[in-house]
Amino acid sequence: MNNVTFPVRLFFSKTGRAKYISALDLINCIQRALRRTDLPVWHTQGFNPHTYVNINLPLALGTEGFCESMDIKLNEPVDYDIAAKKLDAVLPDDIHIYKAAAPIKKHTEIASSVYKVTAECDKDKLKEFFGRESMIAEKKTKKGTVELDLKPYINITDTDGAALTMTLPSGCDFTINPSLVFDTYERLTGDTVGSLGIQRIRILCKDGEDFV
């Protein structure tokens, strides 16, 4: 019995129609895709073995991702580029594997995400909103709705007219999604956001480096 496994981190984008696939459905989709390849995929051992797939930082429904990643394990070493190409070939059009590599950081090191957001709303009101001393959000948690001041967590790095670039906390312990920011905007200003396009463009670790 060979107990040695070879972990592979697959980096992918999830855009277009694929942004409506939930995190759970994505795992299912990847597991089936792996079965369509001849990659020597490792399965979890135990009573009900299944293909091991770990999504490092699940993406909120409706958000596009350009730097997503998941970990799988192989029973034999396979060239990273070949593994990436094989899986990419059997995935739906809007999920694209662009790189495979050895995992370097642990997913528990993830601290924040950088988003590019286009919001159809009153630009002046939005500017005024981000200038507030505090912005109390109603965040839904497992224990119910709690009030949370978003102000200390939002870091807007770029506002080039149409799109905003903002950094928000992400990770196992604490996450704020851009949609919460805009829900709060609507609630506090009374304005309505017509369409909201959210793209995750970077995932950062506690040390400020990209998650790799």
Binding site: R17, Y20, S22, D25, L61, G62, P92, D93
Partner: peptide
């Protein structure tokens, strides 16, 4: 369940 209204499946 919006995924059922958008296609794009394998």
């Amino acid at each position: 369940k919006p995924a059922r209204y958008i296609g794009g499946e394998v």
